[in-house]
Amino acid sequence: MIDVENLTRFYGDKKAIADVSFHVNKGEIVGLLGPNAAGKTTTMRILTCYMPPTSGNATVGGYDIFDESMHVRNITGYLPENPPVYTDMKVSDYLAFVAKIKGVDKRDRRKEVDTVVEKAAIGDVQHRIIGKLSKGFKQRVGLAQSLIKNPEIVILDEPTVGLDPKQIIEIRELIRNLKGDHTVILSSHILPEIEQTCERVVIINEGVVVAEDTVENLTHLREGGERIRLRIQGGKEEIRKALKAVDNIKQIDFKDEKKGIHHVNIESDSDIRKELAKAIVNDGLGLYELSADRYTLEDIFLHLTTKEEEVA
């Protein structure tokens, strides 16, 4: 549905993104993840034809973003970081205006507005002035706007920024409901958000794509490794000795100690839980907890985004 190839964009001398490439399938929800100023907004602005790339190309729904920009705009809904609303208009007037400039026929306009009002759950405020609404409702109006004309592709730039926890949950629910009918790209610098709404993640840091995979794959295996969490009662040296006896341990990490129980993290190439349990019990140590710890997206993210600094 969306193919991005080697997109590069300069602002003056400053490189915002460099050689960004990724692919989005039809009906997927893909998260664009990265710290602030990583190039997420730039990438989205290029995909929505707000501005052209310095080099590289991309197709959206099979249309080239540069040569067939009107086609791209026709099938894309976009919610910028700040909802692009006219604060002095009424919600319903605003949505009708957007429907007009998106070229919705006069007879379908009323229905179209009603549909998005219902999808974004803004029925109660549709006759109010947008400027008087709370940030959460403005965001929803912005989202409603992006859904007008039922676009195949929806691009959302930080859709939950600045909202309170309840509103965040509601917006997330709303986004999840778009799945299937729409192909969605959303950006965020908040990991749980991506984890909860997206199937696949593209991680961007300093304008470069550092990873592209499913959430499952990214959190399960980092470079083919496993992490095992242990809580063992006993002396530090005895524990170390017991663990040394087990093969395939890459790293032993003593975290903290409470009432004689050590919290130990172990990294390994394969699943060695059985061997570990045996070794610990055989040495007469108390095994309080043993669990395979999945990497959180947080770990992956920090790992990927700090790697370059270590090299430098």
Binding site: R45, Y50, R73, P84, T87, K102, G103
Partner: peptide, 11 residues
């Protein structure tokens, strides 16, 4: 108001 982002991304 940033509404140019709307105008430039709609057909």
């Amino acid at each position: 108001m940033g509404t140019v982002e709307l105008l430039y991304t709609t057909p």
